[in-house]
Write a protein that binds this DNA or RNA. Structure first.
Lengths: 191, 191
DNA sequence: CGGGCCTTTGACTGGTTTCAACTTCTGTGG
DNA sequence: CCACAGAAGTTGAAACCAGTCAAAGGCCCG
């Protein structure tokens, strides 16, 4: 197993190598192909996923059947539908691999057992959630503050390499507008 | 001090009355008047606030000087700018009392001390964050899924009493449209 | 080399904003 | 308790941002 997770945990709490070894049974390493669904709408979100290498996205289908991407998870980010995972009720989302992705997964029961055995991990997961929630608050601010065009400009300047990495229709799906409009924005920039 | 917080903590972790009594020095009870700012843009978000009675809102000023409300906190919700609070860097937000509000506040250093002394509180704050983040994910879904008009209809059906409680311009500010448009939607509903 | 998916282009549409003027409500001081 | 000023809410006209639809072009991958 990659030690990407160990290094990530060590960024937030002190953790000995032997301790981490003892935690291993709680985690599962898996690799999924591009477009593979880890979660589908109507199913219970059984796992939390830590991205070792690759990229995941959280999306849903609107009433017209169009995919709307809520968030991406790149290397060293956790991804789950927190509502479904924490209540173990059916989800309204899909979690899908954007590209071939290597993951570390933990299911709800294993997490509870892990936390019982290693209570210091409560702090780690709290810190992870804190960062995720801070990002969500920032995201909401952007959505209210900037026009669609400005959101596109900001996103491309902040994450130029990521924009190269994903297809345009996914970027449009994340920024909340149509591929046609994205196309227009791109051509506008050139002139 | 009100025991609303004790009851809230008890919903997530076992906590003895004496234990809670020992935690008291970490918390401060305050009452603020309507429109009082607990945090202003450019200042560091020093505290987290638990609403005992009343209502807070988190907002920012866009480039035109218009207030955009990101979230409300009613009774039994925690409110803070997590980015500023956790990094202790200047905030881009305001936190303001919507009405006269009774709060329990804790600052960053006190929280760290509290968590060192009562590590089980890590779990409590993790659960609080988990609910807040699940709500944020749901909120993002709504923003992408529904038109402004549909968001208004849904909000009024889900929270009719809250809509009565706050002025309309705050509701417009939260739903991300103009007071004029809200006015039009209201008249449309009547006919 | 072919087929399907992705991207581009352009015309038309409509939901929402903007602006300005008017009305109603609210609370504060005389 | 009334008067008045400022704040909040309403109305209507004009403008615009972004969506929709349809059709053509480009490109990746089998």
């Amino acid at each position: 197993m990659s030690d990407a997770l160990l290094q990530h945990i060590a960024r937030f709490i002190p953790v000995a190598k032997e301790e981490y070894a003892a935690m291993q049974p709680s985690f599962t390493t898996i690799t999924v192909a591009k477009k593979h669904n880890l979660l589908a709408e109507g199913r219970i979100c059984t796992h939390k996923y830590f991205v070792v290498k690759g990229c995941l996205r959280l999306f849903f289908l609107n009433e017209k059947g169009v995919e709307q991407t809520i968030q991406f998870a790149l290397e060293n980010w956790w991804m789950t539908d927190y509502a479904s995972f924490s209540t173990q009720k059916p989800s309204g989302f899909f979690i899908q691999a954007v590209e071939k992705t290597e993951l570390i997964a933990i299911d709800f029961a294993s997490q509870e057992k892990l936390l019982a055995q290693f209570p210091q991990m409560e702090r780690y997961f709290r810190m992870v959630l804190q960062r995720a929630h801070a990002a969500a608050q920032f995201r909401l601010k952007i959505l209210y503050e900037l026009s669609k065009e400005e959101q596109y400009r900001q996103f491309t300047t902040l994450f130029p390499e990521f924009v190269q990495r994903i297809p345009q229709y996914l970027l449009a799906s994340y920024l909340g507008f149509t591929p046609e409009y994205l196309s227009e924005l791109r051509s506008r920039k050139l002139s």
